[in-house]
């Protein structure tokens, strides 16, 4: 036990502070930075619109489609912006109004009202959906995936390439303990980095919401959602970490399984239900508290085939992940016992 900790401490220093770790931090912090940036722009917009002329929504809603633009200008008054351009032989015009909490665009084609767009200055509901999408499609699928790939492949394969693995093998440590120690180091590093990233981005999401929204959310779901987001990021590290550690140990070129896994995880949604359950992502998504909207880029035809497997219940998902991890680690420990130092063939 003590030895595991000593090994983990030695390894962690590298995992946290090496120059390569910078890229992992970048991946983990990117969503947080984006949400902070968005928060700033929302706040800027709020203060900007605070002084704009208000046109009651009822006035705008009453204007029927087909009304000429001159008439609209007469009833609704001066717009906040007025944009004109030409496209595909049509004269287009867009007038923007503000009703106190929403921005409303009136779109014209050849001088006649064609459609209406309404957008709130900021909608918490929309933002939390976007967050769910970012979390599942970017954070879990890409950031945690590649981050863990980098951190965990480094543990064994990286040392073989650096020709420094034998120093570990020359320590009076059982190989299994060594494996566990290294896994713990990678796990702590990745869980802290990605759990922290999730925490930061979640608080960034909350930082700019209007106080009414925030109060309501904090009193109901905020704590529960935040916990599960962070937990699923950490569990992602547990699952991907063990797979990549084993891949780095077993295979000369772990990129090919990584590639296969990446493809597998991304086509996973189209597979029959049973196969869906064989992916790390499936369990992680089961744990995520808010279901994201479907990926908007999926073509409609495919959307019909896309039948998400019924999410596994959270505890079953966690247990499943842990069981898979234990199994993979067991296989890895069998390998590491027989592992030889063989730098020549890299």
């Amino acid at each position: 036990m003590n030895q595991i900790w000593i090994i983990a401490k030695l390894e962690m220093r590298r995992a946290f502070f090496s120059r390569r770790a910078l890229w992992v931090y970048l991946l983990a912090l990117f969503p947080a930075v984006l949400f902070f940036g968005h928060g700033i722009s929302v706040q800027y917009r709020r203060s900007e619109y605070a002084g704009k002329p208000v046109t009651p929504a009822a006035v705008l809603d009453r204007i029927p489609v087909g009304t000429p633009d001159t008439e609209v200008l007469a009833t609704a008054g001066q717009p906040i912006t007025d944009r004109k351009w030409r496209r595909r032989d049509l004269d287009r015009r867009s007038l923007q109004y503000f009703d106190g909490s929403n921005r409303i665009w009136l779109e014209f084609e050849n001088g006649a009202l064609k459609s209406r767009n309404r957008r709130t200055l900021n909608s918490f509901d929309e933002d939390s959906k976007v967050y769910a999408g970012v979390f599942q499609f970017f954070y879990l699928r890409l950031a945690v995936f590649f981050g863990c790939l980098g951190i965990f492949i480094n543990l064994f394969r990286g040392e073989m390439i650096d020709k420094s693995l034998h120093y570990w093998f020359l320590a009076p440590v059982r190989r299994e303990i060594l494996l566990l120690g290294k896994y713990c180091a990678g796990l702590i590093a990745s869980a802290v980095i990605f759990g922290g990233g999730a925490l930061l981005s979640f608080s960034a999401l909350l930082s700019y919401q209007s106080s009414a929204d925030l109060q309501g959310y904090l009193q109901t779901d905020a704590f529960y959602h935040g916990t599960w987001y962070i937990l699923s990021a950490m569990l992602g590290c547990v699952g991907y970490g063990s797979v990549f550690l084993a891949a780095g140990l077993l295979l000369r070129n772990p990129i090919i399984p990584a590639l296969v896994m990446l493809l597998w995880e991304s086509i996973n949604g189209f597979l029959p239900e049973l196969l869906q359950k064989l992916s790390v992502l499936h369990y992680l998504q089961s744990i995520c508290p808010v279901a994201p909207p479907l990926d908007p880029n999926v073509p409609p035809l495919m959307r019909m085939i896309l039948a998400p497997a019924a999410p596994t219940s959270a505890w079953a998902a966690i247990l499943g992940l842990l069981a898979v991890t234990a199994l993979v680690l067991y296989a890895a420990s069998r390998t590491v016992r027989r592992l030889e130092i063989n730098y020549g063939t890299e």
Partner: peptide, 22 residues
Amino acid sequence: FAPEKLMRIVGYATQYDAAPRG
């Protein structure tokens, strides 16, 4: 096959001219 016992009594300086990074 028992490094936990063997390495207590063995010190080995290998021919690999590499050291851990940094």
